[in-house]
Design a protein around this nucleic acid. Structure first.
Lengths: 200, 200, 200, 200
DNA sequence: GATGAATGAGTGTTCATTCAT
DNA sequence: CATGAATGAACACTCATTCAT
């Protein structure tokens, strides 16, 4: 049943199957045959739409990154006031968005991190992602803190967000978004409190 | 040339080779043949000292965990005074010990985390490790904070430590231990400051 | 953009692409996809004009054979006198024609010979080709030599021509047509000298 | 049933199976699985003794080359007198030795020639082989002919030998060694006759 | 204790072919 | 007439594991 214009449909379908496969059996056992079976297509189709398995994995990682970016920007759009605190909370919330803390997403992110240590193409993507979070945080902190403190605050906040995410992922239980966000908010408030002290 | 008492020597040798192999080519390409070649022994010997490949990986993870534990306790022994702050700094420093932030250690930890999501034996070890850090932190915070705050502080600190470690590992550059520790110290001081406010 | 009378154009186009593909990557890597890409058409069209891949290969071999035949006959037409020597030189020259000693032609001939050992359709073509050369030579030698000697001379000359061609093809350098022809001319003259001796 | 010191045994066994496989189904269908089945061993053993399939093919080509070399030298040893004619006849006979004109050998040589056009490792071997024949011939002709004529005679003789071999291989019938040798002897005598004329 | 020969299942990938559009 | 989506078998190769020596 071949049809034209299937490319975007098949690509989404295969990326979804990849996330599901990694969720079910882990990246090392997520063979092309397994993914294809989940997607309900033949093995060969993956080479047809992605050059090879690595192409599929790269596309999957891009998909997760884009979902993260959109999660943050969706929250930006809902903001009533453009204050650093509001923006920073949006960033925090976006990082704990459902698309990022679901089982498939968490397991796939972890697998990508491990793979990225030896796969240049994934490494590049992962560093872009890391930098983006830091830049976003730094940009907001810079509005109320001198450069050096802003940087330190951004580094700390980025680490805290990633750490909360990581420990949530590894805990085995479902991610307690509210609790994680609260801890991050607290850190945020402590950093912003410094700002006021510094200004006064 | 069979010798007696080779077991501990061979085991250390093979664990070291495993760390080196993961550092060089990643866990998925760290085949038994590759590890054996690095260790300068035959393929078959791994089954002899460890039940199978999984046994070797499990032993390697235990090795890393023990190194972490020892890194913390070594710093405990150097303490002049047993204050929560001193102990907590020791924990922080221990987590950024050379044995934990070296290339082989970082890459192997990452690989283990990813694997642990689908391998019960590794998952058990990893959760023990996570719990240990949280318990240690919580125990110290408890000395100066009420239970709920102590727990929150411990969760935040654990996440911050892991997050700093993670972002250091993923950055690609060599780990800036001093900078990471400073950020953690700052978080520590902010939490301890809360304690004084609460008590006064 | 369907057009009428495309068949001969497409067929030539695809045969040319096949020769080019074999020249570039060898017969075993000259996949339908590769050939189609070189020809600038879709994969499926090959089945449309040739039954299957084998049909395309067979047509390509026929193309080379026809080029050889035409190369000889073109030289026949230029002859001023119809002597055995002149005809035999024309045969020699025709076999070293540009269409036969170009890179694509040489590589494709070699590949066909190897394939012909296990592919009946190609084998048939190849034997027709071999017989044709022998018959042509034998027919000319017969004009000046008794049957047994004519046959031996034709066998020797056919082998020499093919051998010169083969060693030229395998040498890796560009084919030295002049040198090869000279060696064949010499052999020819030696055989014809026998004729004169025999007659006198 | 693993044993030590199997390497030379297994290597010969697999090279023989390769020749048999190429004889039966041609090089393109002589898969590792097919060869292993013929040899009565598992697929994986080929990677164990030869790096990969190409390693096996290369070893097989070396085997054929060595058999040729030995065929010539065996005939050298039987010579009563060291004359150019005797040596050159030994070379001719060696090239039509049973090891070179058997079905498996002929089909494998043809396949190697075709492959050598795009496989550097095979090409190197094939050129060594071509050069060796030419050098041997040239060395003998040089004893009775001036350099330029010796070279031409060697080129012609090499081409004639290869051509006779080639047409014998492609004919489909069993190789008529006697007839081929006779044609080559005749060419040889004609060249040597030139020598006498030149000297007188 | 230690080796390395041997297995065979499993991997990613390629490919000729088919066929709805 | 022509496309390219889709298949599924076949391929070379890798690998953890076993076991006779």
């Amino acid at each position: 049943m071949p049809k034209v214009g299937m490319q975007p449909i098949r690509r989404s379908q295969l990326i979804a199957a990849t996330l599901e496969a990694v969720d079910q059996v882990g990246m090392s056992d997520a063979s092309i045959a397994y993914i294809a079976r989940l997607a309900g297509v033949s093995n060969g189709i993956i080479s047809h739409y992605f050059q090879d398995k690595n192409g599929l994995l790269e596309a999957t990682m891009r998909h997760l990154m884009q979902a993260l970016s959109e999660a943050v920007h969706a929250r930006y759009r809902l903001l009533r006031e453009d204050t650093p605190q509001a923006r920073l909370r949006a960033i925090i919330d976006g990082n704990f968005d459902e698309t990022q803390v679901s089982g498939p997403a968490m397991k796939t992110w972890l697998a990508f991190w491990a793979s990225s240590m030896h796969q240049p193409s994934l490494r590049r993507l992962q560093r872009v992602n890391d930098q983006r979070l830091y830049s976003n945080l730094c940009g907001q902190f810079r509005r109320v803190l001198p450069q050096p403190q802003a940087r330190a605050a951004a580094r700390g906040m980025a680490a805290l967000i990633d750490g909360l995410w990581l420990r949530g992922a590894l805990s085995g239980e479902s991610f307690d978004t509210r609790q994680a966000a609260q801890i991050a908010y607290d850190y945020l408030d402590l950093q912003l409190a410094k700002a006021e002290t510094a200004l006064s």
